[in-house]
Every structure is written in structure tokens, then in C-alpha cells.
Nucleic acid binder design. Structure first.
Lengths: 167, 167
DNA sequence: ATGAAATATTTAGAAATGGTAATAATTGCA
DNA sequence: TGCAATTATTACCATTTCTAAATATTTCAT
């Protein structure tokens, strides 16, 4: 293990944790009444439309039963749409409702605005180079790149933007 | 608000959230038996020795009563030292015990090693520029720099490395 | 000094969250 | 067909967290 690499990891850890704290503050301001697991669940469903319950649970770090009830709550608040899969009726198909999508968007927007507020006094060129450096690091953490264990499940009615074949 | 700045904020948010997930995974691996709020509490106490209960609670996002009990647990496990403030006896002075400090260090070390593992296949120059960019970004989120609202409280026995005036 | 208001924390009881084990429904393979 | 495996849910219990109220201490205005 390289000394240089460790130094970078140390720095990365520190800044990421600090930045995440700031993000959390912004999130709390915007995500009224949403707990962290609820928020993360919505985010995952948004990124993986049509995902199943247990893959969601695994990603968020909850058990399937807990996630089942968490989704109960989200469905009751009309933030996610839960319907049975036509092909495999054991499965559940999860998607954000328009309201859920809108909520996530507004929360994210508030977070972005909060961050931008902190960033604004920075000289633009520095910002640009900093973000570039970070972006190069990004594939390291992007699960779409690093891991391939996502369950595609029911590709047939993965999204179903307009119709609901599940009666 | 600049369009460019917003774009940067968007990018930054994405990378930070992704990276934080990776960090969380590494943390979970190392922080055996510590919940996230417990972990965050220990981290805050470590960074703000001698802090009071409610400022800690506010930072972590818990109420004072909840934090009181959480600290009960940490004190019972000899991870934090809770003693009354000499000057203002309403207050409580929180510090990490040597064991608490050591635990945090080892957890952090494990996280760093895990991150370094991901970083290792990266070319050294990129790492170097990333470190530079990160260190430039850091003051934006560093509470020691950006904010001054921390309660210094009892400056007298803030740290008390060797003696315990509060019998 | 004395009493009222303010501050910091703890206690008590209710509500929510999360886990394990058991259950139900469905699929796929022998 | 029958049986093991998969996916989700229900039942039950432990823990966490919140709200409200109580306690202790300090500060401030008489």
C-alpha cells in the first residue's frame, strides 16, 4: 500500500465526511418528515425504477421485513407506487409516484442551492478544477460501474409509465 | 446565484453522496456494535472536547433527552467521560476516554485503508491533484473555519487532560 | 438578598423503528 | 406431482427516539 494513496484516502475521508454533514443539514431543512432510511429508499427507487423490495432493503441496509413496513409508509403517503409483478407474482414492483419524484427533486434542489451558497465565494477556476478532480474519482464509488449485482427482475414491466398491467 | 456555481454544487453533491456510501460501508465494517448516531456522537465529541449535551444533540440531529440516554450508553461502555462543569454546574462536560479515542482512531484507520484499497489502482498524478482539490474545498465545510457558533462554555476545564477538578 | 425567568439536563411514558422467526404465495426443478 | 427455493408479509419483541414534565442551577431585576 502506497503512502501517497493512504494520504489521499485520509484527505478524501475527511472532506467527504465534512461535506456530508453540510449536505445533511441542507437535507434536513428540505426533507420535512422524512427519515434518513426513507430518504435513501426513495433515492434508490428513483435510480432503480421497478426494483424489488429485498434488493432495496439490502442497499439501504435494512432487513426485508423492516423495508416492507417502511414502504408501507411511503406508499400510504403516495410517494411510491407498489404493485405486483405480472410475470412473477411473488415480486413487488416499486416506482416513485410523480409526487415522490417531485419531492426528491425539490429536496435535492434545496441541497444544491445550499451547497452553491457555500461555494459561491470561491474563485470559479478553482471550483472548476476541484470538481473535475472529484469527478474523476467518481467511478470509484458509482455502483453502476463498480458492481453489477443489481437484480433487473421483471424487465417487462420495469417502468410502466402509463399503464398498470397489474390489476 | 451563478449557473456555473450551481452546476458545481450539483456535481459535488453527487460525488459526496456516492463517496459517503462507500465510507459508510467501510465504517460499518470497523465500528462493531456502534450505531450511526453513537458513532457520530463520538466523532463530534472528539472534535469538540468539553462540549455540552445539547449542542452535541443538535449537531447529531437528536433531542437532548435522547442524547442524554445515548451518552448514558457510551459512558457505561467507558467511551466518553461525562462530568459536571465546575463553573456552571448545570452543564455537563463531555470528553472521549482514551478507549473512546482509540476506538475512533481504529475505525477511522480501517475506513482509510478501505478507501485506499479502492484508490490504489489510480494513477499517482490524479491522486495528487485530487488531494489538492480536496484540501482546497475543505475549508468550505470545516466548522472550525466557517462557523463560530460553537459554545465554548467552560473554557477553564475544557479539556482537563490530567486532572479532574470535578470530584 | 430574594424571587422570577432562563438554561441545561434528566426522568417518564408513548410512539416509531428495526430485528428475528413464522407464514403465505409463487416458481422451478426433480 | 411434489419439494426446495425465492419473495414478500405478518407477528412479536427489543431498542431508539420523541414529547412533556420535573429538577437543578444560574442570571437578572428588583
Amino acid at each position: 500500500m502506497d503512502q501517497q494513496t493512504q494520504q489521499c484516502a485520509r484527505e478524501l475521508l475527511e472532506v467527504v465526511v465534512l461535506a456530508m454533514q453540510a449536505v445533511r443539514v441542507e437535507m434536513r431543512r428540505g426533507a420535512r418528515g422524512l427519515t434518513v432510511p426513507q430518504f435513501r429508499s426513495l433515492a434508490f427507487i428513483g435510480h432503480h425504477p421497478g426494483c424489488g423490495l429485498c434488493s432495496l432493503a439490502e442497499h439501504v441496509g435494512l432487513t426485508c421485513p423492516s423495508m416492507s413496513r417502511l414502504v408501507d409508509g411511503l406508499a400510504a403517503r403516495s410517494l411510491v407506487d407498489r404493485k405486483a409483478c405480472t410475470k412473477d407474482r411473488r415480486r413487488v414492483i416499486l416506482n416513485l409516484t410523480p409526487q415522490g419524484r417531485e419531492l426528491m427533486l425539490s429536496v435535492k434542489n434545496e441541497a444544491v442551492m445550499g451547497l452553491a451558497g457555500r461555494l459561491s465565494p470561491f474563485p470559479p477556476e478553482e471550483l472548476k478544477s476541484a470538481v473535475q478532480a472529484l469527478s474523476r474519482l467518481r467511478p470509484l464509488f458509482d455502483p453502476a460501474q463498480g458492481e453489477r449485482e443489481l437484480t433487473p427482475a421483471c424487465p417487462a414491466d420495469q417502468k410502466s409509465p402509463n399503464l398498470k398491467p397489474a390489476d
